[in-house]
Write a protein that binds this DNA or RNA. Sequence first.
DNA 1: TCCATCTTGGAACGGCGTTCCAGATATGTC
DNA 2: GACATATCTGGAACGCCGTTCCAAGATGGA
Lengths: 225, 225
Amino acid sequence: MAPRTRRRTEALSRERIVEAAVELLDTSGETGLTFRTLTERLATGAGAIYWHVANKDELLAAATDGVLTTALRAGSPGSPRDEIRAVALGLFDAIDHHPWLATQLALQLARGSVTPRIFEVIGRQVRELGVPKGQWFTTTSALVSYILGAAGQNATNARSAVPHANRDEFLNAVSSAWEDLDPEEYPFTRAVAAELRGHDDREQFLAGVDLVLAGITAVHLPRAE
Amino acid sequence: MAPRTRRRTEALSRERIVEAAVELLDTSGETGLTFRTLTERLATGAGAIYWHVANKDELLAAATDGVLTTALRAGSPGSPRDEIRAVALGLFDAIDHHPWLATQLALQLARGSVTPRIFEVIGRQVRELGVPKGQWFTTTSALVSYILGAAGQNATNARSAVPHANRDEFLNAVSSAWEDLDPEEYPFTRAVAAELRGHDDREQFLAGVDLVLAGITAVHLPRAE
DNA sequence: TCCATCTTGGAACGGCGTTCCAGATATGTC
DNA sequence: GACATATCTGGAACGCCGTTCCAAGATGGA
């Protein structure tokens, strides 16, 4: 039933606040979200926001959680390997669209609550893969660690303002920077710098997932899977 | 030559500032390092510090760099596998002693400069392992991603005030929290919660390194290594 | 000794997260 | 419909932060 008295603006709610926060993060980066920009965007005062949200940390956690939920909903039916790849790619792409997500994931797994979400979804597939029960935890941990670590590193690439346009440009810049390193100290890094140019990070990321999966097969599933 | 006139206090220097910053981070955590606590500790003013250091980001980068250099100096001679394990453990232990390091590494690889250091040291061993040149970059990336991801996740465990005393206690708390998750949504996580109790994170971390190494062997070194 | 340069300490500034609270708005009761 | 109560709102104010600015102290060469 519609309220009898007209409201000046749409009623404030936790969802509306979190939604606005995500938009601000997406458009203006991590520093773009302040309680002041948020009150302006929502045409309200700080106190009103604090009625729905305990503090900024909780707001960031809620924003992270919302985006993460969408990202993990991929769930196409397929082999455990395909599922794992799909989940990993979902996370990778989510970070690509929301560069602030990488930082938040890193900060929040240092404070719990995020890990179980990813852990659960990967762990189920590890189970289905046929890994013996005693190795579930170790194996899932390794996979999740790789996925989060790699996704976080690739967040650098996503940090350029335009999502895909100057991505190659960015990689070229990093490649050049690596080639300019001290030859005495960084011979290896310089040697592989060329490989950075024009390489596909998604493909590279998936190759890493496959590498870990190959390790799991070799160590825990000795009879060909 | 010693200065003829006596100074009231030891001369300020970049090294002394960074050293004090690391101490403050170690003893009071990430929030404990402010320019005010730093000026108090060094008995000086903010302007004096800014003469030696551009801003707080640079200070944090210098602190991270210093600790990282010490951690990566492990370098015991041995097989490539042993070297990789040693470097990984060095990083793991450094994060254990300096919990703020995990956050800083995560934040700074989203801004370059840290990665090459670790990349170089791991990459050399990947080369020695016999991985074909075309795969150096992918392989090293995967290893570094796992190491940083896992070390970062384990930083949670290090965040308790007393380094080792209540570590088991902490793991028990996490384990209990996982057991209290919604059975509908988190069946897998609940099932492995018990494995958390009293498990050794270092061992677990190393098992992950071995898993990735096994994958590298399986994929890139088909003839037994 | 004097001067140019390097270095210091502290006051001040703007912006942040957060608190506080007076008042507007909704809800329940007769 | 009217009143009491609980819920929600907006904005002023607070304390702390990183940073800037600058007058004054220290240093070293001519």
